[in-house]
Design a protein around this nucleic acid. Structure first.
Length: 840
DNA sequence: AGCTAAGCCCTTTTT
DNA sequence: GGGCTTAGCT
């Protein structure tokens, strides 16, 4: 990625294309329907290698044969690729070759000499998608993609625009991009500075509010009165404004600003917008269903042209895969495309190349439960009697779930399936841990995608704060982070004084430090320490331009005493942290400058995975979008977890539909095998709670689904050392929906399942007892515990003999409200909820 | 100033 | 259950 600080004169980057970009070409015209017979065009050894991609693509064309990138496309895909002039909306179902269409379309534009690579604006939603698109365009036209500077995420393109025109937004080009963590810390300062109780009005919550406003494209003046009042007794608007002002003095942006500033800039400078209109001859947008209002405004500004001028915009999306409503995505954007771009051509891609008919059938049946769809029906020609139906499995608890999934994986592995072809897709990241634990025990390679991130580690953030401050000395957040790390005797008192001094004079804290050294406001010791800090930073800043950046980075960490701090640390983590710091320096090598590096990590928080290692992928359903695997495991299909309680509480019906789309995304990731799991017991907040199978299981078609028979009596229960449980005597699963959990779900269907998971008010009701009717035990947290005792005071007594469905028989050792401490014969002492045990 | 112990909150998804 | 922040102590 370019570092974004290039000084290349903007509008002279490329020669004028041959002929008018949207008119007939001066060179050999290429009717789009030329018969095809071209061999693989630019490989590394082709004569065109080494040229830019446009040149290579054209060279391929000039050979006089139809480029083979068009062959192998189905008619709809062909149309989507070849309709390059005028607005096009491609509704592409899962696995219908969406990315292929996008990349081929780009190749086609280039090969038709309609535009230079730098004249194509191609926007994706995630960095991963951008990376993949770059690679695939590269493969199509031969070699790596140089010269497509405007392919990237909304945010990365936003940064690029902002670096160029920072002054129009009241920033300087070297501005810092703050991540969520910085933002929260900053807001916390503002809240406290305003004398607002930050317990009652958490900074994190306000950060989310601001983010929501920005997603809607609202600046402080625009936010609705109600919203403004809702936070901190009506101070919402002022706080938001104060936050923006503070960002300006810090010369910093948050993620939302990367979209909002360009919008504002284009609105206020129509001439500038015009220049970009001239520049971007073709605009492509991936995952259009995920765009939020701000992104929509951004796109419309760039894509809409005066009457008569062709609007060469192509948006690709799938309303059934819209899963980001919670962060402001507006499915409406895709629904109104035809209104926004008059004369738009709408092309549906419904032929699926990815999954078996069982998987497709299951997914289609599920998603049909949603209302308000554009209505696509995926189909496939693929039909193989050997194809496996979607497998639904039941497990007792998440531990057994992980164990069983592990066994299935090992079995597949023995059948020579690669781990790289398998993935576990979870609803919420806390589910990952159990699988990780299990796989560590098994010695099974796994990779967590989008998990705890490298760049979020303490030592990395510290190091980055040093680098940020060197690059941008107004970055007070960075300053505050490291001014006393390692310890330099600069405590709260000193920092507060610096803070006040800086604020009073409207200067950065580093500058304030430099000035305060010469005053007598601080103690001599603090002054000495500050002097060292300031001198160090001045020196490092001097080295910035002429020292290799990796060398400078090492120098900074050495001279600041930061590495020494960890070397002297005797804790177990210290060596790992030093190793991470080395890794950080190593990863800087790929970048041209320290600034380029900082920008990369601000935007691309994910660390690259090494594909060479054969490993199972573990990730959330959200981050799985766009990926595919031979075998997919979908654990945790239980009410409250999936669909997630919070989605239901906050989103109501549309929340449920979004969850269903998420389930649809999960199913359609699978090419050949798909295993769904649900458990009867899950530990939530440290307590065992019983759970109901997800309603989505009911929405799967029986014809494409198998309820799998567990191998030998339920995984591990009777061989796991808990002794015989009553459950062992249950009928084994039959081939119909007759698992105990399932039956229970049916029985309870009319009950309000939403109460099943502890809501925040602390009341949760659960049901246990197979074969018995109706809810029995009440599990109540907090103050309602007392009530439940009054209702049913003599349910259990200390010393009583009881049975627990998981742990077997035991004696009650203690009772606290509804929580029992039980000495189990086999499982030892456990704390369980009274609803889970029966008197013997 | 710095450490430890005790409470507190939270646990959906992300550029 | 657990990670984090705060309060209170040395």
């Amino acid at each position: 990625m370019s570092n974004g600080f290039d000084d290349i004169p903007f509008f002279d980057e490329e020669p004028a294309p041959r002929g008018r970009p949207d008119g007939p070409q001066a060179g050999a015209p290429v009717p789009a329907t030329t018969p095809a017979s071209m061999p693989a065009s630019g490989t590394a050894s082709s004569p065109a290698a080494g040229l830019g991609i446009a040149a290579r693509a054209m060279a391929a064309r000039d050979v006089g044969r139809r480029p083979d990138y068009l062959s192998g496309l189905n008619p709809e895909q062909r149309e989507a690729v070849e309709s390059i002039d005028g607005p096009v909306l491609v509704l592409a179902g899962a696995g219908t070759g969406k990315t292929r269409v996008l990349t081929t379309r780009i190749a086609h534009i280039l090969a038709s000499s309609k535009a230079f690579p730098s004249q194509i604006l191609a926007v994706t939603f995630t960095n991963k998608a951008a990376r993949e698109m770059k690679e695939r365009v590269g493969v199509l036209v031969g070699g790596a993609v140089e010269g497509m500077p405007w392919m990237g995420t909304f945010h990365s393109i936003g940064v690029k625009l902002l670096r160029r025109h920072a002054e129009l937004c009241g920033l300087r080009s070297a501005f810092t991009i703050l991540d969520t963590d910085d933002v929260v810390r900053l807001i916390k300062q503002l809240i406290q500075a305003d004398g607002i109780d930050d317990k009652r009005w958490p900074a994190k919550q306000f950060a989310q509010l601001i983010d929501g406003w920005k997603n809607k494209g609202l600046s402080p003046a625009d936010i609705p009165e109600g919203d403004a009042r809702a936070f901190a007794n009506g101070k919402g608007r002022e706080l938001y404004a104060a936050y923006q002002a503070r960002l300006k003095t810090l010369n910093a942006c948050d993620f939302g600003d990367l979209l909002l500033h360009p919008i504002k800039m284009f609105r206020e400078h129509p001439d500038l917008l015009k220049e970009y209109h001239a520049k971007f001859r073709y605009i492509l947008v991936d995952e259009y269903q995920d765009t939020n209002t701000a992104q929509y405004m951004w796109l419309r500004l760039l894509a809409q042209r005066p009457k008569g001028v062709p609007q060469n915009v192509c948006c690709v999306g799938d309303d059934d895969q819209s899963i980001y409503g919670w962060r402001g995505a507006e499915v409406d954007n895709i629904l109104r495309f035809e209104k926004d771009f008059v004369g738009a051509k709408v092309i549906k891609l419904e032929r699926n190349y990815r999954s078996t008919e069982h998987i497709l059938g299951a997914a289609a049946h599920l998603i049909a439960h949603n209302e308000g769809r554009l209505g696509k029906t995926l189909f496939t020609d693929r039909s193989d009697p050997d194809d496996q139906k979607v497998q639904v499995h039941a497990a007792w608890d998440s531990e057994e779930e992980a164990r069983a999934v592990g066994e299935e994986i090992e079995q597949l592995q023995r059948q020579t399936h690669r781990l790289n072809d398998m993935a576990i897709l979870v609803r919420a990241s806390f589910q990952m841990r159990e699988f990780e634990d299990r796989f560590v025990t098994l010695g099974l390679n796994y990779r967590v995608i989008g998990g705890p991130r490298f760049y979020e580690r303490m030592e990395i953030r510290d190091a980055l704060a040093y680098f940020r401050l060197v690059c941008q000395d107004a970055d007070d957040l960075a300053f505050e982070r490291i001014v006393n790390t390692p310890k330099r005797g600069l405590g709260d008192t000193t920092i507060r004084a610096l803070h006040d001094y800086a604020r009073a004079r409207d200067i950065p804290m580093l500058a304030a430090a430099a000035e305060m050294i010469d005053t007598d406001e601080l103690k001599a010791k603090a002054r000495k320490s500050l002097f060292d800090v300031v001198t160090n930073f001045r020196r490092w800043q001097g080295l910035l331009e002429n020292t290799p950046h990796t060398e400078l980075a090492e120098t900074i960490l050495e001279e600041s005493g930061y590495t020494d701090m960890w070397k002297n640390d005797k804790s177990a983590e210290a060596p790992g942290r030093l190793e991470n710091l080395k890794e950080l320096i190593r990863s800087m090598e790929q970048f041209e400058s320290m600034r380029g590096f900082l920008e990369h990590i601000a935007l691309v928080m994910d660390t690259e995975t090494n594909e060479n290692l054969d490993a199972v992928s573990i990730m959330t359903l959200h981050s799985a979008k766009g990926l595919e695997f031979e075998t997919v495991f979908l654990p945790g299909w239980e009410e409250g977890l999936f669909p997630h309680q919070r989605a239901l509480d906050e989103g109501g019906r549309s929340g449920l539909e979004e969850e269903r789309r998420l389930a649809y995304v999960g199913l359609t990731r699978a090419k050949r095998r798909c295993h769904i799991w649900f458990v009867s017991n899950r530990r939530i907040h440290g307590l065992w709670q019983s759970t109901l199978p997800s309603r989505f299981l009911d929405e799967l078609p029986v014809t494409h689904v198998d309820i799998s028979e567990p191998e030998q009596s339920y995984g591990g229960y009777n061989r796991g050392g808990y002794g015989q449980s009553r459950f062992d005597k249950q009928e084994p699963f039959s081939n119909t929906y007759s698992t105990p959990g399932w039956k229970r779900a049916q029985a309870n269907k009319t009950d309000a399942t939403r109460d099943n998971w502890g809501s925040r008010s602390g009341v949760s009701i659960e049901r246990v007892g197979y074969g018995e009717s109706g809810p029995r035990a009440k599990t109540i947290d907090g103050e309602l515990i007392a009530k439940s005792k009054v209702d049913d005071p003599s349910k259990f007594t200390v010393g009583e003999r009881v049975f627990h469905i998981k742990f077997g028989n035991g004696n009650i050792a203690g009772i606290e409200g509804n929580k029992l401490t039980i000495d189990f014969d086999r499982a030892g002492q456990k704390k369980v909820l009274d609803g889970f045990v029966d008197k013997l």
